[in-house]
Every structure is written in structure tokens, then in C-alpha cells.
């Protein structure tokens, strides 16, 4: 009994001491914290869990950044916010980044977070589509230009002529058979389709990375100017973000709780199972079991040139920017 009490007292003492240290140290750090802002492409779903958990757990502060995450969504374009300086860092697709760079925007990729393309085409087996050639002559739902690069390259590769139908953010058109093939993100729409009562076995899926069309997606971008002015801040942001992602994968429960809280705050309807699915897929995309030669956050020249050539081939860019002028290596020291 006495021992237990003693132990309790010791614990309390340690806790108080630690608290004192933190209180004393924090202001000192606070002075040194650099303000920075970040805009993800979309709402605070599990697709960005690594950044939000990093903020929540003080990982950015630990790296000396007083970070503000601007809530993304349909009303905000991260590329615009990045170029007009409202956001210091932005999450963009690699294809978007290359397009912007080729279009003269002085932006840099400082981390390729996703190693694998999550974009996919999905069709109902009931519509008779089981192989790429079955898509010929069918109605295919496609999103905006960025999301059309891979599908169009895919059609070209297999010599398909399709009837493109602009696809909204819902999958209802596909579910009601308004289109035969729909675009989907593996971590999002694909699961939504499953959760509308369609069995995985009833679907045919075309993952682009399985058809030599791997276009890695989400990466971290910064203005060249920002990078030149404060490369340490950029490095700190990338390292903190990678640490955030690692934390999210190691503590999915916490990451999901933060995600759910943020989504509810924005009144965005979602379900825990959907966010859980998304976080699990993010791990598959960020830390793929096969490949991932670039290391976490790294961009392989091969991936870069594939995407850039893809863009050029359909005329979205005229010339391919130099890899080294586009990508600045910032490595997690743990990686080495």
C-alpha cells in the first residue's frame, strides 16, 4: 500500500517536472517557430491524415514550424493558393506540378508523398467489361483534365475509342448505369461504390499502375522563391510531414479520430469505415510493398519522365522541364 502510494508520488513528481520543462522550453521554441501554411487538394479526409495528425501531435512544432492547414475543398484551388502566396506549401498531383512548371510557374516538388497512382477505372462485370478492349465504344465517365491523362493514355495504349461523359463527384451516374466505365480513386470512390451495395466480385478494375501508367499523385510543392529563401523551413516541413504519415500509419486509431473530428467540424458527411479504408489505401500508396525505390517522399526520375512524357504526348505541355530543376531532394534522415 505504502509502496504504491510512493510510486504514485514519484510519477506525479516526474510529471510535474516534465510539465515544467515543457512550459519553460516552449516559449523559447515559440519565439523560434516559423509560421507556415499548407493547403491540401481536398477536404480533411484520411487522404491527408499524415498532415493533420502531425499538426495535432505537435510534430510540426517539434520541427520548428507553426503550421496552419488551410481547409481544402471545392472552393479552393491549391495551385492558385500556392502561386499567389496564400499558402506556403501545397499538395498537388505530380502531373499538375509538371504542368505548372512547364507552364512557367516557378514551383518545386520537394516530396513525392504518393508513390503509386490511385486513379483507376471501374466497370460492372454485368455490362460485359472484363478486359481493356471491352471498353471500346462504351460510355466512360472522366473527371477534369488532370484526371484524364492516364485514362487517355490507357485508351491510346489499347487502341480504344470511347464516348467520354464528364463525371461529377458522385458515382451515382455509374451506379444507375448512366456510364459503363467510371473514374474512381482507389481510396475513395471505389469504396463508395462497394458501400452502395456492389460486391468487389461484380466489378472489373483497371489500376493504371498495373498498365505501365503509374502516375504518382500527391506530392508537396513550394514556390522556388520560398525554397531559396528558407530551404531549412522546406526541409523541416517535409520531414515533419513524413513523420506525421509514419505516426498515422502506426496509430491508425488516433489518425482516424482526428480525421473524423475535422470532417465533422466541416459538416462533411462520412463514415469511419470509409476513412479507415482510405487510410489503409494511403499506406499502400505511400509505402507500397513493391517498388517504393525512391524511399518515402522520394521521386524517381523514371516516374517523373513517364508522367512528363505522358503530358507532352497529349499536348498538355510542350516541353519537359528538367528533373533537377523540378525536384529537390529532401530526405528523411531515418531513411538512410
Amino acid at each position: 500500500m505504502v509502496n504504491v502510494k510512493m510510486r504514485e508520488k514519484c510519477k506525479l513528481l516526474i510529471a510535474v517536472t516534465l510539465f515544467m520543462i515543457i512550459v519553460c522550453v516552449a516559449p523559447a521554441e515559440g519565439d523560434a517557430l516559423k509560421k507556415a501554411s499548407f493547403i491540401p487538394q481536398w477536404v480533411p479526409q484520411a487522404q491527408f491524415a499524415g498532415y493533420y495528425i502531425g499538426l495535432e501531435k505537435g510534430i510540426y512544432r517539434k520541427h520548428g514550424i507553426d503550421l496552419t492547414i488551410i481547409t481544402g475543398g471545392p472552393d479552393y484551388s491549391p495551385s492558385e493558393l500556392l502561386t499567389d502566396g496564400r499558402a506556403d506549401f501545397a499538395s498537388l498531383w505530380l502531373s499538375t506540378g509538371i504542368q505548372m512548371r512547364a507552364g512557367g510557374e516557378k514551383i518545386l516538388n520537394i516530396a513525392q508523398i504518393m508513390q503509386r497512382s490511385a486513379l483507376m477505372l471501374v466497370a460492372k462485370k454485368a455490362s460485359g467489361i472484363e478486359r481493356p478492349r471491352d471498353i471500346n465504344g462504351r460510355k466512360v465517365g472522366l473527371w477534369g483534365p488532370v484526371f484524364q491523362i492516364q485514362p487517355r493514355a490507357f485508351f491510346k495504349k489499347y487502341g480504344l475509342t470511347v464516348q467520354v461523359v464528364p463525371q461529377s463527384f458522385s458515382v451515382n451516374l455509374f451506379l444507375r448505369d448512366g456510364v459503363d466505365v467510371a473514374s474512381a480513386m482507389w481510396y475513395n470512390e471505389y469504396h463508395t461504390i462497394l458501400n452502395c451495395g456492389i460486391e468487389p466480385g461484380e466489378l472489373t478494375t483497371f489500376f493504371f499502375h498495373e498498365h505501365d501508367l503509374n502516375f504518382p499523385e500527391d506530392g508537396i510543392y513550394v514556390l522556388e522563391e520560398t525554397y531559396r529563401r528558407d530551404p531549412a523551413l522546406c526541409a523541416a516541413f517535409v520531414l515533419a510531414s513524413i513523420e506525421g504519415w509514419r505516426y498515422a500509419f502506426d496509430h491508425p486509431g488516433e489518425a482516424l479520430a482526428v480525421t473524423m473530428r475535422n470532417l465533422q467540424k466541416e459538416h462533411i458527411p462520412t463514415t469511419l469505415v470509409h476513412q479507415k479504408w482510405m487510410l489503409e489505401r494511403m499506406k499502400d500508396l505511400i509505402l507500397p510493398e513493391k517498388g517504393g525505390d525512391a524511399g518515402m517522399g522520394g521521386l524517381l526520375p523514371a516516374d517523373y519522365s513517364r508522367v512528363a512524357r505522358g503530358l507532352r504526348s497529349i499536348g498538355l505541355i510542350e516541353s519537359v522541364p528538367r528533373f533537377t530543376s523540378f525536384y529537390k531532394v529532401i530526405r528523411d534522415s531515418d531513411e538512410k
Binding site: V165, P166, S170, N172, L173, G178
Partner: peptide, 12 residues
């Protein structure tokens, strides 16, 4: 044009 209420009846 890309809203469900418009697109679905149109396509179907």
C-alpha cells in the same frame, strides 16, 4: 450539367 439531377436522367 454535371449534377446528378441533370446528368443521370439525360444519360438514361
Amino acid at each position: 450539367f454535371f449534377q446528378d439531377w441533370y446528368q443521370i436522367p439525360k444519360e438514361l
